[in-house]
Computed example of a mutant assay.
Amino acid sequence: MPELLIVAHGQPSDPDPAEAALARFAARVQNETSDLTIRSATLAAPGRLEAAVAALPEKAAIYPLFMAKGWFVTSALPARLNGRAIPVLDPLGVDPDLPDLTADHLRTVIADRNQSPAETPIVLAAHGSGRSRNPARVANDFALALSGKLGAPALRVGFVEEQPSIEEAAQGLDTTAICLPFFALLGGHTIDDVPRALDAAGFTGLRMPVLGELPPVPALIARRGEACFHTAT
């Protein structure tokens, strides 16, 4: 059976919890497919990625659980494949179906709050970068697409590592607002930095799980893996 290895960044200072969280996520993806075996490894856990790559069969692919197609996906990850020519799929954050899936889920969340998209301010809390414009571009492109799918006013985008900050983006909003963290997995930024920024802004709206944890995402990843092998054959 073909294997799909899901790779995330992980937490260098404390790799084991992030490794376990990714394994739990991979199990959710496994529940969505009977055509693939799903594995997982983080870049941060010493030797974990190399061991996982060595165990992959000839028919295998890698799914990068990242929000942008940046240095980690295009350089750091391929450099650690031990010379194996394993296909690396596009990361979650640039998947063309992601805005539609997110919009569908948000419509349900908004309806459950007895609101409409037009009256629901949305803050997209993203990572950003002080070194590359690419992460911010991906987040802003996603926000624009999501706004169009929802038929809602322009979304506010705030960043952990650049301006405008999440605190700035979340200011002046009431309880009708929603904050969606544009991250693949729960980690240091989403546990500490994003809540701290929202608290500083006096944000009283709904704080959603990170985008990668939304219910439709595991099935999306399973479909991408299956399509990769179907195309190859």
Rank of each mutant, 00 (worst) to 15 (best):
E19A: 15
A136E: 04
A85M: 11
S132H: 15
A154I: 08
K149I: 05
A136M: 09
T231L: 13
M1T: 14
C179M: 08
P46D: 10
A41W: 02
P117G: 08
V29K: 03
N114A: 15
P215D: 06
E161V: 08
R137E: 12
E3V: 13
A21T: 12
F203K: 01
G172E: 09
S116Y: 07
D192A: 10
V210P: 01
T37W: 11
A154Q: 14
P2K: 07
A219D: 11
P91R: 03
L144R: 15
L155N: 01
G47Y: 14
P135Q: 08
A61G: 13
T33R: 04
S13D: 15
C228Y: 14
L214F: 02
L146K: 01
L36F: 13
L146I: 04
L146W: 00
L211N: 00
L206F: 10
D192S: 11
A20F: 10
Q30W: 10
T37L: 15
H9F: 12
L150C: 03
A45S: 15
A41V: 04
N114L: 13
G187R: 04
Q30F: 11
L49M: 09
N140I: 11
A20W: 09
P216Q: 07
R84P: 00
P91N: 07
F183A: 01
V210S: 00
D97M: 14
A23E: 05
D193H: 05
M67L: 13
M67K: 02
D14L: 12
E119T: 14
R207G: 03
R137H: 13
V138A: 08
I191C: 12
M67V: 07
A227R: 15
A41G: 04
A222H: 03
V73N: 06
A103K: 12
A201E: 03
T233C: 12
A154S: 15
G10N: 08
L146E: 00
G128C: 02
L43E: 03
P57W: 07
L5H: 06
N82H: 11
L36N: 05
T102Q: 04
T37I: 14
D16L: 15
A27S: 08
G172P: 06
A20E: 15
L5D: 02
R207N: 07
A55G: 11
L211M: 03
E50R: 12
R133P: 09
D14T: 11
L173W: 10
F142R: 02
P15A: 12
A232T: 11
G202H: 09
L150R: 00
S13M: 10
F203G: 04
Q171G: 13
V7N: 04
K59F: 10
E161A: 11
A139I: 04
L36Q: 06
L220N: 04
K69G: 07
E162I: 01
F159P: 01
E168G: 05
V7K: 02
P181G: 02
A170F: 04
T204S: 14
P153I: 06
D104C: 10
G93E: 00
A21Y: 08
G212N: 00
D104N: 15
T102W: 05
R113D: 10
E50C: 10
